[in-house]
Structures are given as C-alpha cells and as structure tokens.
Design a protein around this nucleic acid. Sequence first.
DNA 1: TTCTATGCAAACGATTTGCAGGGAG
DNA 2: CTCCCTGCAAATCGTTTGCATAGAA
Lengths: 154, 154
Amino acid sequence: MTEVEDLLATVTRLLHARGEKMSAPRRAVIRALAHQGGHLSADAVVEAVGVIDASVHRASVYRTLAALSDADVVHHVHEGHGTTVYHLRTGPHLHAQCTRCGDLIDVRPDLVDDVATALHAEYGFALDAEHVALSGTCNQCAGHTPHHPTQHPE
Amino acid sequence: MTEVEDLLATVTRLLHARGEKMSAPRRAVIRALAHQGGHLSADAVVEAVGVIDASVHRASVYRTLAALSDADVVHHVHEGHGTTVYHLRTGPHLHAQCTRCGDLIDVRPDLVDDVATALHAEYGFALDAEHVALSGTCNQCAGHTPHHPTQHPE
DNA sequence: TTCTATGCAAACGATTTGCAGGGAG
DNA sequence: CTCCCTGCAAATCGTTTGCATAGAA
C-alpha cells in the first residue's frame, strides 16, 4: 500500500515539474490502475474509480488518462477490436489479444527484437511494439470449442 | 478494367453461393476499393463510392463492408489510432503504420514467422498478424523533422 | 414471387468540449 | 491570488438499427 503512496508522491512531483497539479480525481485514477493492476478500458477505469470516489465524473477520468499519458505515467494499448486499454507504465512488455474471448496476455518484450531489426533494415520503420496488441487466438479458444460463445467475436 | 469486371463476376458468384445478392451499392464499393487500391477507412470508402454513385447511402457502405468481410472478399486492419481500414483480399501482407504521419505501409508477411512460432510454443497463442497494423515511426518522420505537422499525432 | 439489400432517419455508445465554479500551489 | 482542474450538460464522431420499399434472382 505504501507502494501506491510512493507512486502518488512521484507522480505529484512529476506533474508539478510540468506545471500541472495533483487532485482527488487524479489520485483516484492512479489508485484504480494500481489496485486493478491489469489493463483497463476507459470504461473499466471509470467504474473502478467510482468505487474509490463516486463523485469523480466520467469526463475527468478521460481527461486524467490523457494527462497521465502525456506525462508518461500511464500507457495505452490498442486492442484488435478497436478499444483502448490503459495501464501504469511498468517494465516493458508486449500484449497479445485473443479475438475470440477478448483476453489480453502479456508477452516477453524481446520476442519481436528480430522483427524490429528487420523492419528497420528493410523499410526504415522503427517499431513500437508495445503500442498495439498482437492479434490471434489463445490456447483455450483454439483447442476446444470451435466457437467459444463467451465474448467478442469479430 | 476488365480485371475489375472479372472481380465483380467472381464476387457475384460467391455471394450467390451464400444466398446473397449483388447490387449497385455493392458493385460501387468493390469498384471503389479496386480503384483506390490502397487501404481505405470506412469514411474514405463512403467518399470514393460517392464519386462513383452518389445515390449510395452511408449505411449501405457499412453494411456492404460487413457483408464482403463475411464473404472474405475484403479484409480490415486495425490501425494504431483506433480506426479501421479496408482493402480487397489480395496476397497476404502485413501492415505497419507510422504514428506521426499516419502512413500505412505494406510489409512482407514472413517477417513475423519466427514470432508466430515462438508465440505458439511459449504461450499457445496463434498469431494472426494481418489483423492489426504494427505501430511505429516511418523513415521520413524519424529522420527529419522532429515533429511532422502533417497528420495524426497520438 | 420471394426474400435480400437499400435509403432514410433515428438511435447509439464512446469520447470530447464549453462553460462557470472550486481547489491546488 | 492565480491558474489549473473539475462537474455538468450538450455536442460530436463513427457506426448501427428499425422500418417500409426497391430490386435481384
């Protein structure tokens, strides 16, 4: 828990350095992201924040996510379905999402190092692999039921 | 041009086989995609179709894109910014999008073969690399102006 | 004739913005 | 005291849907 407090203090300093301010809504968003740990859609953040402080408005969550993204405190990843998920900047890692069940898994970051090198050499393209989730089918969905009814098909 | 006519005939047969019908709006969408060649957002398709046949309604374009996607005649790719682009199914190829200028480039498909193998071996995840665009910075944007004002920054 | 696809307009969900007031520094 | 951030409500954007009808097979 002190861990979160430390983070809050760090972010507060970081914001001040940028001429911005810490506030109750922003604290709530950071707490929500830290508590949930995983990758949350904007809507999920709104919900999680609501539990912490019901007076925080939806719009403030969006504005806070934007502000914290600018400050590089949170990262966002684009999923295959067109939605965006947010998470606190932690160690580098990639994301892979199942198009059947919607699950997002973390992947070791060096997996695409060779691809990055090749892309740069052949196309002059500097890959930022963390920004979008790889798309495909996860273990469970591939093996078992040909069509898993649980979630978002695309 | 005959090439497009052939495609139209092929798609017509394909639709019939699925119990569906060919129509003026659908022809217009296919023509638009074939003519433009590249990867078009839904909005760009609407615009291109408008030039061919102004009476085609926006909603029909969306429905047609959905129908043709179902029939596997068109593919869609999710870009980093959250938009979706459509193109006729041609030879397999990957996409990489620059987050600065928004440009989408085609990439040889076998580039990620090793990654696909590793993902499967380590995570049981079956990669479908064509479905989302890789994200990064293109040659021009990386090298020259630190911030290219031309298009979508994210 | 039968049934699919269309045009239209309204509905929709997610995100953004203008504004006046509240609170951080 | 100043200026950033907030809550609220309305606006906006892209996409979808219900309905009656036109049109393909």
